[in-house]
Design a protein around this nucleic acid. Sequence first.
RNA 1: GGGCGAUUAGCUCAGCGGGAGAGCGCUCGCUUCACACGCGAGAGGUCGCUGGUUCAAUCCCAGCAUCGCCCACCA
Length: 898
Amino acid sequence: MLEKTYSPDEVEARQYSRWEAADAFSAKFDESKEPFTIMIPPPNVTGSLHMGHALNNTIQDILCRYQRMQGRDVLWQPGTDHAGIATQMVVERQLAAEGIELDRGMPLAPGNTRQIGREEFIERVWKWRAQSGGTILKQLRRLGASCDWQRERFTMDEGLSQAVLKVFVQLYREKLIYRDKRLVNWDPRFHTAISDLEVEQKETDGHLWHFKYPIEGEEGRFITVATTRPETMLGDTAVAVHPDDERYKDLVGKFAVLPLVGRRIPIVADDYADPEQGSGAVKITPAHDFNDFEVGKRHGLEMINVFDRDAHMNDAVPQDYRGLDRFAARKQVVADIEALGLLEKIDPHRHTVPHGDRSGVPIEPYLTDQWYVDAATLARPAIAAVESGKTVFVPKQWEKTYYEWMRNIQPWCISRQLWWGHQVPAWYGPDGAVFVAHDESEAAEQAKTHYGKAVELTRDPDVLDTWFSSALWPFSTLGWPEETPALKRYYPGDVLVTGFDIIFFWVARMMMDGLHFMDGEVPFHTVYIHALVRDEKGQKMSKSKGNVLDPLDLIDKFGADAVRFTLTALAAQGRDIKLSESRIEGYRNFCTKIWNAARFCEMNECRYEPGYDPAANQQRVNRWIVSQLAQTEPKVRKAIEDYRFNEAAQALYQFIWNTYCDWYLEFAKPLFQGDDAAAKAETRATALWVLHKALFLLHPIMPFLTEELWQQSGPGEGGVGENLMTLSDWPAFDAGLIDAEADASLGWVVRLISQIRAVRSEMNVPPGAKIALIVNDASAASKARFADHEALIRTLARVETLVFDQPVPKGSVQDVLDECALVLPLAEVIDLAQERQRLQKEMDKLNGEIVKLDKKLSNEQFLAKAPDDVVAEQRERLADSRQTLSKLQSALDRLASA
RNA sequence: GGGCGAUUAGCUCAGCGGGAGAGCGCUCGCUUCACACGCGAGAGGUCGCUGGUUCAAUCCCAGCAUCGCCCACCA
């Protein structure tokens, strides 16, 4: 006997182990089946499960489970990303707690005990990973994710590292990777370059300082420039004005004397200077501003780098400022300028300041040598693949975002000054010549050819951007560059499921690399972009805001199926999800409801019957519920195939709760308790069969509950398909099971009962008090049509406490439904005035409807232009409304005469 | 500055060229032999505003307003 409520925690652990024991998740390399591939977006190895992951993986799991049930050979490739900066941070922090710091050629910080080198550090990272990395993959199991865990990969794995090497070397040889000295986004906290995408613009309240630079040789004349970063003035090498700016025409070609430094800097004419902005003159710091860099190149200006890698002032600035942190230097510069009487004014100024997305500190444009990918070239085929529909985005609007970025793509800075990651496979000779190779010996050979003798080589210390390896995930995980069976079978992937926040970081780059290295074959045919999960107020969940809902807590509290169903039900396309606990609670109740429906079947001795044939059903209610089920399946199937997961959830919820539980099981009660043995047996078999089919339809969304109930009420231990999941059988229903007659008849009964209930409830008919019912529109046809409902309705009398076929007592009220008249409660148990009011209200509503329809149907344009079926439908509705109105009217008349 | 999206019941959101829907909340009534994580019945909306297209607009188009996001820039 099933317990009274469902206990997810016990069931989930047990069922998950059973599935694993049955090897239900692995890719089967089964040539008789069509493959279906999903590559998991590899979570950071340092990560832990948040709601975004929960949504992302619930959707993937739904697709995988559904496709397995459709007979596909599914590979859901799991794994983690080595997450360069994030991981290095975690381990560095851990080391710091032990008083250990990285040896970066700086003196030991006070309080620390020792420094460690690169090798030892990397060892520590691996050790950390072995102990606590990849927690998130264990957490995914709690969610029910059916990944092929035997194939788990890590972006720093040997195999994946080989792929990275090969890609780097090949792109270098194709001149699609190159080394360049230009301004990069420099993160002074992590001492590394980062890509444009890792820069976050933040609105900040700052100031605009106006400095007066004296003009050389013109005593008392100044040119005013404004800046938000006064410390950079120490690196100024020009002042620019617009060529057409009359105010400064005579100054072009002359020099200003840079205060505090004393450097002569030219005043140049350049379109970049905007006469409308500030004074119209702009200071030029080519080494620390992207625009100024371009100006500097145009005018051959000196590029003076004034920062070290910590963004402290370096030796290029006057003695007084050396070693100062950039913000301290800012204060000092302003104070000194003011002391010189050269500070014109300070305006408050709100502007956006670039910050490192990981470090949170303002980044500095910084002149360094870095490695770049020629993204523009790689982007071309990636754009074309989407244009031609080889890869489609769902929802389609994201294609525009993709195009927008891809068509304006900038060189991708891929080198990072970190230790954790794939080290750049480049070696330098004594004179700085570069040798890019798969390993040191290959590089040495190249060097030998180059120099004519063996030389000592130094490896580039930088590592690659984490996304460089993530970009290869769709094929590196399958064994590339080896020609593995997995690669052959499971590339390209079918669908990539991800959030829009990594379209640029990841999707775009997988497209570029996939097309380039896999013979022009896209990495996936569909990109399904899902919503972001926000809190119930619509705010992004973040630890600092304290509004984070932890999926594991929710799973503990409500069960994985409830969490999954909630996310699915909310996963409408094109909108963010605002998640609240009350919503999950509602779907937890749905789980309980299903559980109790199964319990009810069990109590009524419904048993699994392999030979049951729904087409042979005699009882109309049984034919009806089968018909309803058969109409639900295509809705669910189509919804999943169209990535409209909320619609699938809704169709299932409606069928199971509103149709099966609310109506069918109620109809079944009198049959279960009646004397008709054949009807009873048929109903028992049908009730369970329909429940089972519903469990299958629901399984992709709610795997645990459905599996458990199947095992408790299905064929049982050792039976054929004792596991729902391994049976993997998506229900298919013969079109013949859709029974229009049963649908119409039971639809009528449902409406009839609803009317009776409405009257009883609104009229406050006490429980037990009888109300009378007659079928007064007793045409032979309608009698025949509904003849065999009589027995059914008679049995319902118990529940509804209505008396069938009583004469209408004088003074009773008559309500109407279709061909039937429903006779309302006895006068003594209801308030007649109230009933008159109720009827009047109904009639008012109908009248409004009739006026509208009448107007429409007397419009000749409408009759001429609207499709016939629409016209016919409107006519029918008008007739119906009129009929109902007249019945209500006669009911009201009777009431008046009471 | 460029782009995208949203605006529908108290809240959260579906829907979408011909009858305004769901969940939660609310009100009323139910210890009905699966389930109070339940059952039954209700109340509640000129579908942001203004125009246009159409026989017909919540839905399509244009403009406006408000909110949100992305990209770029900011001396």
